[in-house]
Nucleic acid binder design. Structure first.
Lengths: 338, 338
DNA sequence: CTGAAAGCGCTTACAG
DNA sequence: CTGAAAGCGCTTACAG
């Protein structure tokens, strides 16, 4: 293994000077620099990341903590992960993916000193992992929000997203718009904040329109989608459009609606929010989606965290981005009812 | 920060002894051990991973190298990643996800000394990254295979998988079975080995049956699927069943087939291989799939690599697992043609 | 602009 | 069974 010592020897300087040119931390005379660079080149030297981390007490490794991609891993999540990884690397950091289940495990990992900062996904309203993060003194940024808006976060702008979806449906004449969310097995305060926030935005929008809200909560599966279709049919027959915040249920909703003799979009228009456009295209009919800005959020999250680490930033970042409407074939004119 | 020195002081021993009990590397008297464990507990001490790595020249970090989850990240890939991460952690290693694009970048990362071993995904027939890996002297295992079967790998058993798919279709009376693969923009030798291997297995199976093979190669998109449907219709009208090794084209194939006035499975039966069952369920009709053993492969890959690192193993592991048939509604009896 | 030296927090022969 | 000490390969005040 080629070390800094080898380079120093060959270039006839001290290892300190080698360090200075590699890191650009101090001015070095041009000739000296040239000699060192030549030696590095000739020996194919690469700085040992671990030694550097120990000496500088900075590892330049960022952890992406995800509570396990349990069930069906959402394509949006992957997009997010990849763009965060790229964003980090452009700034000289590496992104480590850590599937963490329990808090104790997480504390251990953070205390190990291996990471300079952490990105936390699938944040819950009351999230004990956030408490652990704070206790560990490892800088972090959240993807999503807890109830405490003082922490640094990037998140989807649910209010704007829902408003746009509602506007889109209204432009097609829809008056009765239901919301279908995802039911989790977890306690309410353990739920991902996105569900609660989407619902709140929906309720606001309905209130502003003076319409009674209809919220249906089902599992994120095909069976859940079918259940939602049946509930709509039986309990809310005058509903002509739905906004779905439950990607996993989208296929089941379409199938279930048809099985009940209703057409999409002839009898029921559907917008699926927090979805990828790719998924929308796979369906029959293709789904109108509010595409999640996963790539943007990933990059912004990485940037926000690194800014924090490098002291570039002033206040804890609070970034909100709405989803983008991608028209498909699942939204049509509201049916005229007698 | 609590260090080993603090623990040693409090327990009235040398730091060496503390190290012995933490790592279990040498016998320590019960009373001494108890004192040290108490000190660790009281101080809430956690060993610094970076220092340990530098001193022992082992980081216990494994890298998962993926050529970027470019296009649509396949759910199978995610399953694979997660199970590899879990498998690694059960054996005391952490899995780092590294999206690597170019070889130079990869060499740098490997040379940095941050990882003990690497797992390489999306392996190509002739893969320059493998050459880099070998040159870097970092132990590795491949997910998939190059042309050189001497390297350690875990992979799908394509021969068995295709045979099972063919048998399944034949049990429904199908005689004319086509294969639809994925066309990449890359040069042939840059293609993922799985495409070539699936095709070879298919050709063998057709030869054994004395049937002329039909291989159609299209993009992994909805448009690609439609193109395949049209090609089948125009050029191979007597085909009654297809095996798809192109997940991204599955939805387009179904849609395109219908658009041409043919029913699935009434006129055309479809099996989608190297797919998740979840995707199959989302489609209409639900797809019969050969589900990729992603979780098993992930775990096996991690184990194989760690065995190698720890010298547990004898020969380079060569592990093959077939996909599992998951019946859906896209396979039916072969239509009777006049 | 350059160097000698301490130190980052561990592991690991080597003695005893 | 336990300890003193060297060393892992860097970074970083401190001098000069």
């Amino acid at each position: 293994m080629v070390t800094m010592r080898d380079v120093a020897q060959r270039a006839n300087v001290s290892i300190a000077t080698v360090s200075f040119v590699i890191n650009g931390t101090k001015p070095v005379a041009p000739e000296t620099r040239a000699r060192i660079e030549a030696a590095i080149e000739e020996l194919d030297y690469r700085r040992n990341v671990v030694a550097r981390a120990l000496a500088s007490s900075r590892t330049r490794i960022l952890a992406l903590l995800h509570p396990d991609f349990e069930a069906r891993p959402n394509a949006t999540v992957i997009q997010f992960v990849m763009s965060a990884a790229h964003g980090a690397r452009e700034r000289g950091y590496d992104l480590v993916l850590w599937p963490v289940n329990d808090d104790e495990q997480m504390s251990h990992l953070l205390a190990g000193g291996l990471v300079d900062g952490a990105l936390l996904m699938e944040v819950q309203i009351h999230d004990s992992r956030v408490d652990r993060l704070i206790a560990s003194r490892v800088p972090f940024a959240l993807i999503g929000r807890t109830g405490n808006d003082d922490l640094p976060f990037v998140d989807i702008d649910f209010a704007t997203t829902i408003d746009q979806a509602v506007d889109h449906l209204r432009s097609y004449g829809h008056q009765r718009i239901a919301l279908i969310t995802q039911r989790t097995k977890a306690a309410p305060e353990k739920e991902p904040g996105r569900i609660m926030r989407a619902e709140a935005a929906y309720l606001d929008a309905m209130a502003a329109l003076g319409r009674p809200p209809v919220v249906i909560s089902v599992e994120g599966t095909s069976a859940g989608g079918r259940e939602a279709a049946r509930t709509l049919h039986d309990d809310h027959p005058d509903t002509t459009a739905v906004i779905l915040v439950n990607e996993g249920a989208s296929a089941g909703l379409v199938k279930g609606t048809r099985a009940l003799g209703r057409g999409v979009p002839d009898d029921l228009s559907i917008i699926s929010a927090w979805t990828t456009r790719e998924l929308g295209e796979m369906m029959e009919p293709s789904l109108t989606v509010m595409a999640a800005p996963a790539a943007e959020l990933g990059r912004l999250a990485a940037d926000a965290l690194i800014d924090q680490l490098e002291g570039v930033q002033d206040a804890p970042p609070h970034i909100l981005i709405p989803c983008t409407l991608v028209p498909g074939q699942s939204v049509g004119p509201a049916p005229v009812r007698p």
